[in-house]
Design a protein around this nucleic acid. Structure first.
Lengths: 137, 137
DNA sequence: TACAGTGTTCGATGCCCGTCGACCATAGCA
DNA sequence: TGCTATGGTCGACGGGCATCGAACACTGTA
């Protein structure tokens, strides 16, 4: 094992705090990585093959954060470093969180989202609207 | 309706982006507000009744953010401003996210969390460990 | 009217983190 | 032994955001 591979430290999702998970997922570049990673089979994407609007220094930084948050597993393959999304482990630790990220529209090159958020703008009265308080008419 | 109440603008969860939701939930003070709010019936907690380690100026700021993210609904009740957690609406827009926040240990005054993250440190082999590549023995 | 309680607004400040260029390390190949 | 490709490390920079005190606005009450 090379010194390069030896310095590759991973964190299992079970040892990740919610704060760290939210911090990792809070960056749009990192979410783009996760989505692109989820769309490909495991161990097929190297770090440099991602379409990101940042330098390779920043790219490397983001992968370090994702690794530390238990979201990505990496393995050296010659000069390249292959990635795998730790979906089942992370889902067990933070159910639903990764699904939200992967379901996000994202910024696919070629078209801009018309109405990005949810589709139904329903008024939806919840427990009690808000106006009309105490018995006075 | 007073000018105070008139300037109270709300945002429905359906109109909130994932980025804004994660930003809102990414702050530990705001998560403490959400947890404390979930533990009480609707419209029973005023902004000033929360146990928070910040000034009232910062407190007011956090409630503005939570309102803008569709997480909290507010109503003026005399000099006080009562709150309600928009749980069903927010859950419909971001399933699972609020559950993660409310399930977080948080920093209950009086004891510190021993092992904050998950309970099982299981090794758990996922798709393919990482070592041993291509057919060469 | 005066006062106390509640909450917002307004600058100012400090810090964290995303970003970059430059340089270095390693793997594979001619 | 060079050359290229991939990727990490280092220091520096900048912007955004959490935080604060002070001042202001509103409500209810003495």
């Amino acid at each position: 094992m090379s010194a390069r591979t030896r310095s590759l430290t991973h964190t299992h999702p079970t040892e990740v705090s919610l704060q760290d998970a939210l911090d990792a997922v809070g960056d749009p570049v990192r979410r783009a990585i996760l989505r692109e990673l989820a769309a490909a089979p495991d161990w097929t994407r190297a770090c440099g093959t991602f379409d990101l609007p940042v330098s390779k220094a920043t790219r490397s930084h983001h992968f370090t954060v994702l690794r530390g948050a238990g979201l990505v597993e990496q393995r050296d393959e010659g000069a390249r470093r292959l990635n795998r999304l730790r979906r089942p482990e992370f889902d067990r630790r933070f159910p639903g969180l990764l699904d939200l990220v992967l379901a996000e529209p994202g910024t696919e090159p070629g078209r801009e989202p018309a109405t990005e958020p949810g589709t139904e703008p329903a008024p939806e009265p919840a427990t009690e609207p808000a106006p009309a308080r105490d018995g006075s008419p």
